[in-house]
Simulated assay, not measured.
Amino acid sequence: MFEIKHTLCPSCSVGCGINVILDGEEIVGTFPYKRHPVNAGKNCLNGRNSIDNHKSKFEDVDLDKAIADASNEIKSINASDVSVICSGNDNVEEIEAIKEFAESNGFKIGFYADDLKNFEDVASYDEIAGADKVFAIGDLLYENPLIGRRIVHAKQNGAKIYALSKNENAVTFNIADETSNSSVQEFLDAFIDEIDDSSVVVFNYVDAAEDLDKLESLNSKVLPVFSKPNTKGALNIIDPKSSEEMEELFDESKLLLVFNEDVVEEFDYDFTKISKIISFACCENETTKIADIVVPVKSWLEQGGSFVNAMGEVQNFNSVVESDNLGIVEVIEELNK
């Protein structure tokens, strides 16, 4: 018998709702959650495919042994040589537990937020649609379509659209009045006289830390859009590191504890230099393939929790399916014994 359960899309920080279709305990598909206030019945391709990673879950892993092996490895190495990596894929409750675990044991902690940072006063999605001018940094119509939808609404409402992308064929260019392939600094400088309190600047990347300072100094509201669902929530709890700082952390580590992050995919770094890697992950990724120990953990579909979306709204979600695995909070409780 088919059943429908509501949850959140984990594909980026926009915070769209999705419906998951179950045939018994088997997930067989998704479709948009029409009454969800963020996406109102629309989902992008990433959202529709968000359950795919659930299909690459670990089979035939002895969970008790994996946790015991991880615990023994952690206890065998000096705390100063251990680094804990958390992620915007972790929910708020998991981030809090990971931070407490690292600090109480004297471990270093690393969190990467796409080289972006926390902006306290950000634009809402409705403010994008209602702006007189929208400055889009990144191909938002292609990469974050539900944000792109608000930019299209702004255009339909008479707004002027300024678009910057490294891609000369960016989809966002199709609706833009002004386009650029320049650096972020050059783009902002070129239109600085146009950016005012009737404008919104939306971005999903920067070229350098100086760009963040420039964005923070603007007279308009801004909205950073992150690649992971709870990056904003993590930023409220942990200070992020730049990509260079993360690589310095890797250099200092003999044991890397990676919680729901694919560091191998994320960073151009030789991870064979690190003596041991333990990956706590809900599904297979490039990091689990090279990890010395893999501890399977519950995915967002298998537990309740909360994400903080790009606007700063806390969004709660419930489990959709049952799992024999433990969540990250429960795994940390076992490691602390």
Results as ranks from 00 to 15, higher is better:
Ala97Val: 06
Gly158Val: 01
Ile151Pro: 01
Glu127Ile: 07
Val122Lys: 12
Leu164Ala: 09
Ser182Thr: 14
Val171Asn: 02
Asn174Leu: 09
Leu116His: 09
Glu100Asp: 14
Asp121Leu: 00
Asp90Thr: 12
Ile128Val: 03
Ala190His: 12
Asp90Arg: 07
Tyr112His: 14
Val206Met: 01
Ser83Asp: 09
Ile147Glu: 06
Gly106Met: 09
Ile128Glu: 02
Lys99Val: 15
Asp90Val: 04
Glu143Arg: 15
Val122His: 02
Ala163Val: 10
Cys86Phe: 03
Val201Phe: 08
Phe173Val: 11
Glu143Phe: 09
Asn174Met: 11
Val84Leu: 02
Asp139Met: 03
Leu212Thr: 10
Ile95Gln: 15
Phe135Thr: 03
Glu94Arg: 11
Ile98Gly: 04
Glu96Pro: 09
Val134Cys: 08
Ser182Met: 03
Ile195Thr: 06
Ala208Gln: 13
Leu146Gln: 04
Ala208Lys: 10
Lys117Tyr: 04
Gly88Asp: 00
Asn157Phe: 01
Glu168Leu: 08
Asp81Arg: 15
Asp196Tyr: 10
Asp139Gln: 05
Lys214Leu: 12
Ala123Lys: 08
Val92Lys: 10
Asp189Glu: 13
Asp177Ser: 11
Ser217His: 14
Ser217Tyr: 12
Tyr112Lys: 07
Ser104Phe: 08
Ser180Ala: 12
Phe203Cys: 01
Asp121Phe: 05
Gln185His: 10
Phe111Gly: 06
Phe173Ser: 08
Ala131Ser: 04
Ala190Asn: 11
Ala159Lys: 02
Asp213Gln: 11
Val206Gly: 07
Glu93His: 13
Val201Asp: 01
Asp126Asn: 13
Gln185Val: 09
Asp207Val: 12
Asn181Cys: 11
Lys108His: 14
Val134Gly: 07
Lys160Phe: 14
Val84Glu: 08
Leu146Thr: 02
Phe107Lys: 07
Leu146Trp: 06
Lys117Ala: 05
Asp213Tyr: 05
Glu143Cys: 15
Gln185Cys: 09
Ala159Ser: 15
Ile147Met: 13
Ile95His: 11
Ile147Gly: 02
Asp90Ala: 12
Lys160Thr: 15
Lys166Asn: 13
Leu141Asp: 12
Asn167Cys: 04
Tyr205Glu: 05
Asp213Met: 07
Arg149Lys: 14
Phe191Gly: 13
Ala113Ser: 15
Phe111Arg: 04
Glu210Cys: 10
